[in-house]
Amino acid sequence: MKCTVCRGPALIDLRRHNANFCAEHLAKFCRDQVERAIHDFDMLEQGARILIAVSGGKDSLALWDILNHLGYDTAGLYVGLGIGEYSDVSGRFVQKFASERGLELLEVDLRSEHGYDIPTAAELTRRSPCSSCGLSKRHLFDRAAIDGGYDALVTGHNLDDEAAVLFGNVMRWQMDYLARQRPVLPERDGLPRKVKPLVRLTERETAAYCVVTGIDYQVDECPMAAGNKHIAYKELLNEMEVASPGTKADFYLSFQRRAVHQLDGTLAEGRESLGTCDSCGAPSPSDICAFCRLKSTTARENR
């Protein structure tokens, strides 16, 4: 198998692009795809100051590396979730990545700064760990992006993530969720601009990018992720992808090109008007935001 670009030995074949790449040209392909997504969806101004939500996994670290290569002024934010060894190891991958490249890393630790961690929050609220985790991360990332005056908050959602969520939303015709499923959400009411520059890359491609550029990342799964329905959708979509390469990209990108704008009205209607949280000042539809409520529940029960 030969590299489509240089005819040297190739190490990966990307059927949906009808291409094979060596290490160097795979890295270039990934950077080009991110640049194209940024351009096509008007995601970021050249040289923008951006905050990247980093978890220590392949997607967020690949994204950080690529945006740094493309000349953006980047900082990463890592939230210590307190999920045992999984969190300790994830945090070390992030710290090593940032320090080797001289990049700015911000860290927030849930337990020492906010008095709880995800396993205790899940136990005390009797809700799934991912719901407490998701709302905590959203709150802290949004907050840090606004407080730090960044032009955008950037996340590592890839094509497989977005196609799986789209599949789930279509299966249930969740019109409000469909209306919101966009790679760029503009800044509004104290919430930062949110951008997903990896929507043109699959998980196999971001993982391969990490391997060929020497990025060590957390391969192990979060122990609380068990039974996530999106994994089943991803597997289904990959069955279709093998039978017909390009299916995932077509499903997601055609939705963005042809359908999502039909739902602009739904998006506008669905916007709850946001006031501010009496306790922390964050944008919130209720007097006390979900994050502050979670904090007070865990503080009360922890005593």
Partner: peptide, 22 residues
């Protein structure tokens, strides 16, 4: 690469790339 032939004594990691967390 997919067309590589693995030989006896090779050590190969099969690394999953699907991740599940939001």
């Amino acid at each position: 690469a997919g067309d590589t032939t693995l030989q006896d004594d090779d050590e190969v990691e099969i690394r999953p790339v699907i991740s599940g967390g939001a």
